[in-house]
Design a protein around this nucleic acid. Structure first.
Length: 444
RNA sequence: GCAGCAGUAGCUCAGUUGGUUAGAGCACUAGUUUGUGGAACUAGGGGUCGGUGGUUCGAAUCCACCCUGCUGUACCA
């Protein structure tokens, strides 16, 4: 791939990292501005925490305790290990534990920030991405969980999705706990395997999931996954239980009541929603898109959910002295943007300045004057920033999709009437300087 | 991690029984137009054919290993 000699720096990017261009960034900014507005409306505080944390601050919650560093980027500073954060929830728990006595209880905060994961990237998934989190800390009230779902719907709809294009799937850790009781299962390793299998239901379907609950499954590339080794009777019990269309656990019944009070309907109970396997303790939810997402070659890809969350009542406690139940939601903003851009033409304003052409360097004062007049009128403009002939300047204007060019050579300066060339129609118009700005506005 | 497919110019790709200085379209540069973009025409630059090693008189082409990318799968706190 790299054609450089070893002596030259590589122009390639590390695996899973990407450059992002204006078009995408503008859509992202648009969504962020919606989020901020809605967060203020819902009464959340804005917080920022650093990109790095001590590794054990985020690592002590790793489910795989034998390899605490797997999946994160870390380095050793003096004698301490630091890691780039892999989510915004662990830093929040750390922040709450650190500032517990000062903050209001319950504490509602939202955060926007880049997170990093040292794992294999997939379609629409990178190793560096922007996340949005909103959490309630210090309350058991299930209205918090319900309101998170309602709030995220408002964000999605404000950003351009209709009700038919997304759904909030909701379940509870308690659903699967009851299930394990029913089949008399205590082996925690086996439980984990079962949860992981069920989590794949919407992607793989019942046939494959039953294989994963039993002996194992071979995927279409030929790779084999070991199963949970359940007997067929237990598998059937699981299937019947999970095909139930309405929830039976108390927490979910209450959340559904609250949804009803809010007249919120764009959700569905789905017991196959599992999510982050270890620290969730109660209600869990997932935000799913209901349309196909394609990659840049036009192929439909397995996109998965764009976010989710749930109740994690023991996370803050694990830091030490303070016990605070909590619930929160995370959205992968870059993924949301990626999907949204396929659905909708946002037509947001890119930078497309009117170009003032330079006929002669000695006339630069004249051009600065025009530039000042046009910019003061609130119009994006620039004096051609390079060097070269008029043709080259026109090509530049065309390339950056400039709406118009200002021609002001010796003749025009003599008469004090610059020419505006409309780059879409090609029509040129000679105008008085005092009408310059208003004439440009007619075109753009 | 495992598996399938792929890697030839900036981009999209052509290039089979291995044979001279490796091609096209688009893009780029200059000109046809000493002050006019998007079209056309002319000319030009750009590649140790992902890398290393091997087989051979001779390798983009065959073999081995490695690297990178895409897709699926595992993991995803």
């Amino acid at each position: 791939m790299t054609k450089e000699n070893n002596s030259k720096p590589s122009k390639e990017l590390p695996l899973g990292f990407v450059d992002r261009q204006e078009k995408e960034l503008l859509v992202r900014d648009f969504i962020i501005s919606n989020i901020k507005e809605i967060m203020i409306k819902y009464g959340f505080k804005y917080l920022e925490t650093p990109s790095f944390e001590f590794s054990d601050s985020i690592g002590k919650f790793l489910p795989d305790k034998e390899r605490p560093d797997k999946g994160v980027f870390s380095f050793k500073d003096e004698n301490k290990w630091l890691s780039l954060r892999y989510d915004l929830t662990a830093p929040l728990a750390r922040y709450v534990a650190k500032n517990y006595l000062e903050i209001p209880k319950p504490f509602k905060r939202y955060q926007l920030g880049t997170v990093w994961r040292n794992e294999k990237p997939g379609p629409g998934r990178y190793r560096e991405f922007l996340q949005f989190d909103a959490d309630f800390v210090g309350t058991n009230n299930l209205r918090a969980d319900a309101e998170l779902c309602i709030m995220i719907s408002e964000i999605l709809e404000r950003s351009g999705l209709s009700k038919s294009e997304y759904i909030i799937k909701i379940s509870s850790r308690k659903v699967t706990e009851n299930l394990f009781k029913k089949i008399n299962l205590n082996d925690s390793k086996q439980k984990l395997t079962i949860l992981r299998a069920l989590d794949k239901l919407d992607r793989l379907g019942w046939e494959s999931v039953k294989q994963l609950l039993g002996d194992g499954r071979k995927d279409k590339s030929g790779d084999y996954t070991e199963g949970a080794k359940l007997g067929s009777q237990n598998i059937e019990i699981i299937e019947t239980e999970l095909k139930k269309k309405s929830p039976e656990t108390e927490d979910l019944l209450e959340v559904l009541n609250i949804f009803n009070d809010y007249k919120f309907t764009n959700y569905e109970f789905d017991p196959s929603v599992i999510r982050g396997l270890e620290y969730y303790t109660g209600v869990i939810f997932e935000v799913n898109l209901k349309f196909d997402v394609k990659n840049d070659k036009g192929k439909t890809i397995q996109f998965g959910s764009i976010g989710g969350g749930g109740r994690y009542d023991n996370l803050v406690k694990s830091f030490g002295n303070f016990d605070a139940p909590a619930t929160g939601i995370s959205i992968g903003l870059d993924r949301l943007v990626y999907a949204l851009m396929q659905k909708k033409d946002f037509n947001l304003k890119e930078s497309k300045p009117v170009i003032i052409c330079v006929f002669d360097k000695n006339l630069i004062k004249e051009y600065i004057n025009l530039q000042k007049i046009i910019r003061n009128a609130g119009i994006s403009t620039e004096i051609y920033p390079g060097e070269g002939k008029l043709k080259k300047q026109m090509e530049y204007a065309n390339k950056i999709k400039s709406p118009a060019v200002i021609l002001y050579g010796e003749d025009e300066i003599k008469s004090g009437t610059p020419i505006i060339r409309d780059l879409v129609s090609g029509i040129e118009k000679s105008v008085e300087i005092k009408e310059l700005a208003s004439e440009i506005k007619k075109i753009i």
